[in-house]
Design a binder for these strands. Structure first.
Lengths: 185, 185, 185, 185
DNA sequence: CATGAATGAGGCTTCATTCAT
DNA sequence: GATGAATGAAGCCTCATTCAT
């Protein structure tokens, strides 16, 4: 009744994420990954023949989820707040995106395609954020005297704010307030 | 006496920064570095025997400069704005700091010491930012109903906002306004 | 399942010994070793990740065998003679021990442990020789007017005497006689 | 009145010997040597353009001295004892000779010549020892029922016996006695 | 499919040696 | 002569990847 020495994509993705989060892209090897999965290194090659493929596949998957969720933001009462909440939930995604520049996009056609997909998804995501903010401007809730790109930039950068709060909701509330009314007293 | 030097520390630092900015820490090798400097790989070893030493030396240098400049922030009329300006100027520093986790701190005693120094400088820097914001609270210009850490976090995260402006000053102005009065109309 | 092994530890040990005997420790590289084994250099790293580990592993193995054999010396009629025979059989071991000072003991924990083991085995071996000689003294066959350490030293140094004899037995006989009754006519 | 940053051959030889004794041949570098001499590494190249030349020059020098001293052994009352004493005095020489196999004899013509010289001197030395022992046989003091080579071998191997004695003379006496009358009671 | 075995490519470092001043 | 600077050769090691079973 030996434990199945087999792996599925869910596990692959989970461990990929964990490994990259902990060790960065340079610390992400099939060696380390296989160790965590408890399989032989070569086994992973039955699923992915390029480590870039695995990574980019995972990232596409991540982005797709995020974009899907953002589609529902506008149904909420305070869309911007909801955006912040969602965004923070995908803090790992943000980190993952930072490793993009170091991935060899030419590694394989699949990687190239994934890269394009990601680029598209990222654009979509930004557009979504922008749309939400624009809607805010229409309703007169968001200022329009500042370049939209700057506003989007600030909103997106909030993901970096460390969480020293009891709950994520608390963090969201504080950041939202700060973001909306500014530092000024 | 001896032959003329073809490289010096200033060049080393400059190319180190450029290389890391372009290729990240995993793309930072003495091989690549020497190619850019137009010297043999082993030549660099006459200056630094560990790549970690070069990198951390550079980072210490960077942080020291930044901290030194921050000391003058309070003499300005709008210290927070000045902070933003300064902070943005050191956007590269911010990126450099992100590679810290991937540096082998035990590589050599010199590296260990540099790491400690950097940690100290970073603390100092955060303290400086906090002090500036606290002074703002005293003067009644900065709100005090939000955790200081969150405020500091937001200020520090602005470094990530991309610059799509004509001049840096424009960027600073926009970000400053946005930061101070918030998104709300 | 997997490919057939082309090398095993026995081969590794054999070639390690030969290489060190012929080229000394400074001539012992995985490069040279792999050439002799007819495999790629990196292949050896699948067995030993540090050359020090391979060498010390081999030396421990050698010493263990030698010590084990010495345990039976006393059952022989002329234990001292048997000692000489055995000792000479391990002439390579003697040479191997001479490289000890040049091995980086801190190369890895495994190396450190091996070093300790070897030290212990060496002590044991010396003690064994001493015990055999002491037994000789008890039986009145070995003189006791000279420091034991000097006697042990002389016995151990015989390993250096070159063999210009037809057979090893001849060598053993001559050396034994010489050792026992001295140069004097 | 700055200290002359100059070196002479005596210093070169002295430090060469010390360095090899402490670190073996693999630990003998011009880098380490120059550090000990307090000069630049390249300075040594004004004296010796090949490290093998320096080492073999030193060894020739050492052997020449030893051989010269052995020439006087026969004038002593107990020539064999004198031989032991002398031999022990040149324990370092013995160690130096052991590194011979690892020296690249083809490094330069000078090295090749030195190697030949050393070989000749070594032969001479062995012959000297043999002659002394033969003279002993003539006088009926040294046995002649054992191959001369074995006897010479034993005498030469005594250099390995560690010195745990108060004085060198004590060591010489013990070893001499042991050597002459053997282990037997 | 899973795997152990083998390997090449690439990065790290040290050191002997040469060169220009 | 003495020296600092530059360099190539050589050794160390890790990891992605391929292959045979």
């Amino acid at each position: 009744m030996s434990r199945k020495k087999t792996i599925d994509q869910a596990m692959l993705f989970k461990e990929t994420e964990k490994l990259i989060m902990e060790s960065g892209y340079s610390g992400f090897h099939f060696k380390a990954l296989s160790a965590r999965l408890g399989v032989a290194r070569s086994t992973i090659y039955n699923y992915y023949t390029k480590k870039e493929e695995l990574v980019t596949d995972y990232m596409v998957h991540l982005l797709e989820n995020a974009v899907a969720q953002m589609d529902n933001v506008d149904q909420e009462e305070e869309p911007v707040k909801e955006l912040i909440r969602l965004w923070s939930k995908y803090a790992n995604m943000h980190q993952m995106l930072q490793i993009m520049p170091y991935i060899d996009k030419k590694a394989s056609p699949a990687v190239e395609e994934n890269t394009k997909k990601m680029f598209g998804l990222f654009i979509k995501m930004k557009a979504k954020i922008e749309a939400t903010l624009k809607a805010g401007q229409m309703k007169g809730v968001v200022r329009d005297d500042i370049h939209m790109k700057t506003i989007v930039g600030l909103v997106m950068s909030t993901v970096q704010i460390p969480v020293h709060h009891e709950t994520l909701d608390e963090w969201v509330n504080e950041v939202y307030q700060l973001l909306m009314s500014g530092l000024k007293k």
